[in-house]
Amino acid sequence: MKSSVNKSSQLSQQVYHTLGKYLQRDPKNLHPEDSLRDDLGLDSLQTIELVYEVESAFDLQIPDEDFGRLTTIGAVILYLDERTHAQGNALSDPHPTPSAKNSRPAPVVKKTKTRPTSKKSRT
C-alpha cells in the first residue's frame, strides 16, 4: 500500500516506536507500505498482539469490526489518525479523553454479508 502518511508526525513516530519494540526491529527499517502479514510475517495471533500493544500505547480500544483494515503499517497510522480526530483530540495526543476511551460502534445485530477477517482461533 502506498500510504500518504507522514512518517515524521508524532503519531507516526509513536506507531513506529511501538511496532519496532514489538517486532524487535529498528523502526528505521519499517515502512508504511509494509504488510503486517506478508512483509512482517505476522500471523493472526501476532497481529492481535501487535494491536494490543497499539491499544495500550494510544489508550484506546480497537473493535473487531475495524480489525480487517489494519493490513499495513500505513493503514494502522491512518486508522489511528482517524480515531484520534474522531475523538476530538489533537493528532499528537496519544491519550484520548476518558469519555472516549471505551467508545464502540453500534453493534450490528442481524445478518451480515461480510466475513470478519479476525477470529481465526480454533477453540
Partner: peptide, 13 residues
C-alpha cells in the same frame, strides 16, 4: 476477549 476469539457483535442480543 483479548485473544479476539469471542463474539462481540451480539452483546445486546
Amino acid at each position: 476477549c483479548s485473544l479476539r476469539a469471542l463474539s462481540t457483535r451480539y452483546n445486546d442480543h
